[in-house]
Design a protein around this nucleic acid. Structure first.
Lengths: 332, 332
DNA sequence: ATGAAAGCGCTAACAA
DNA sequence: TTGTTAGCGCTTTCAT
């Protein structure tokens, strides 16, 4: 591999000059620049990012921590994060935590040692629980938190209003005549879950229904989790509608109702989700859900992170996006 | 951030000694080691991976190039690649190519400049088309190719026998009495696709059927692609079974048959896939498919790559894994 | 407009 | 067993 010295020697200039050309400094004679550029081509020289990073302590990379790959919400998020990163010349390094705090810490430590320039966290952990830790990280590099309010921390956060989303969908189902509502909460006492669940409770109360009538289950963030939760629920009662807090879980629940119980959706039981992942349009029947503008969330989070990385003056902010009801056949 | 010099000074030893402790060299007095270790703790010192890489030109990281995140086959693959990488202290950097040759090249160049220690490629490109390029890369770092034979290139490859897999499933369907077979090929003239398709053709011939009876369609690697392919196929004819070369595509096709045509699977049309992604067990009805041992593929590929990175004497090899029929309700 | 020299944090060859 | 020294490839003062 050719180095900057090889180029300098062959071009008959100093390393400094080559470096200037590389960094588009204006303090280089036009002729000199030509010669250097030619030599670079001839030698197929490409600057070592390692050496460059060593000096600048910037790696033009950032880390994205998500719970897992197989939930399509994250796959789609990653897709758009990567697109935005590429546009700006950054590399997004994706790590999955499996919601394991130890694994998460391990990754953060290692990534910090690898000098990533920033973090995007999709983690399910109350900000208050992790206030100290997050502050600690945010002191070193910019941090963007997804799906959760920043709650006063020195970080940027991007999320949709989960309370409103679930409140809307619950209200809609009640208005359609459903009185016996089943609900599948997401596992863990995290703000994102609590907000969505509160949206459900509030809608139930606002409509004068009793919460005791509700069948409450819990599931992790997977299809299998939704499948099992639906099974447990049906063992205990028979709702006319099931509200899940997550499309992936909702789809798992639908599969149980269809495959195991041979029920008809929505005739026997209506089902709704949250996220509007691509798959939700294609299930049978298509899933009613709350749309999160995934592309916008990803693009906002990424571009804001990069802005903060490159310009310390950019301030943290809270970006709250509106959820939108997508009524489809699973409730009609 | 504390550096090695800070530690050395505070501990009253030389950088070298600290470095030795760090690298668990036996040439350090037990007492000295204790002192150094203490100082490291006190200063919360962590060695800079950047500086270390700069010397060794090893980054303890490798790149994984896949077409996209949203095909669950890749999500699952990544999950197990990451697990294996973590076990060995490596960071897997995932990049998606969208099967865009230019984007692919760009990534390879950039990743090489970032000194990744190796590559795992899931790319859909005939090895022959890319012989030269692959050789070029393999000269610099170890390469593992997934889903494709190495065809004599100096790289390791891991794949299942797609010819046999599709041949088996086709034979099984014919034996079940299906005579009018629809097939959805995957887009692109890549060995992995050709092998699977040949498996289909051969089974058809072996059973004395005529290929003209077959309805042939093409789809990219997405659910939407399968959906559209099924639509086009049904506009032209009516098979009793549809064989897709990929679960994701098969599921898309099923959704079309169920949602748009209100057909019954398998009564009106049977459907089969390939890959055995987690979702295929949960669809309605569950999808008959050919199982690829994803976990084994991922683990073999990753551990072999890392072995090659760390020990130049390890030889490239071709790892061919057996496919396995998973008969489920979509064909029963 | 150009270059010499120092240094980023670490490792390794050689000396003691 | 420990330390000295050089250097990985680059950027960045500070001179010229």
């Amino acid at each position: 591999m050719a180095t900057i010295v090889d180029v300098a020697n062959k071009a008959g200039v100093s390393r400094t000059t080559v470096s200037r050309v590389l960094n588009k400094s204006p303090l280089v004679n036009e002729k000199t620049r030509k010669i250097v550029l030619d030599t670079i081509k001839k030698l197929e020289y490409t600057p070592s990012i390692l050496a460059r990073s060593m000096r600048s302590l910037k790696t033009k990379s950032f880390a994205v921590l998500i719970p897992e790959f197989t939930n399509l919400y994250y796959s789609e998020l990653l897709k758009y994060i990567e697109i935005e990163a590429r546009k700006k010349g950054y590399l997004a390094v994706v790590c999955t935590t499996e919601i394991d705090p130890e694994r998460e810490r391990e990754y953060v430590t290692q990534l910090l040692r690898r000098n990533v320039d920033g973090f995007i966290f999709c983690w399910y952990r109350s900000a208050s629980e992790y206030r100290h830790y997050l502050k600690h990280i945010a002191k070193k590099v910019p941090v963007v938190l997804l799906d959760q309010p920043a709650e006063g921390l020195p970080i940027t956060s991007v999320y949709t209003d989960g309370f409103k989303g679930i409140n809307d969908i619950t209200t809609y189902l009640i208005q359609k005549g459903h009185r016996k509502l089943g609900v599948i909460k997401n596992l863990g006492i995290f703000p994102v879950n609590q907000n969505r669940f509160r949206g459900f409770l509030t809608a139930v109360e606002e409509n004068g229904l009793r919460i005791e009538e509700c069948l409450v289950e819990e599931a992790d963030y997977s299809m299998e989790g939704g499948y099992d939760a639906a099974r447990r629920m049906l063992e205990r009662g028979f709702p006319t509608a099931i509200i899940a807090m997550d499309d992936t879980v909702a789809i798992g629940a639908m599969e149980y109702l269809l495959n195991e119980k041979k029920l008809s959706i929505p005739k026997d039981i209506a089902v709704s989700g949250y996220d509007n992942i691509g798959l939700s349009r294609l299930t049978s029947p298509p899933l009613t859900t709350v749309s999160q503008p995934i592309e916008i969330i990803a693009a906002e989070a990424t571009s804001h992170l990069i802005n903060r990385i490159e310009n310390k003056n950019v301030k943290n902010k809270e970006i709250v996006l509106p959820p939108e009801l997508k009524i489809r056949a699973s409730t009609e």
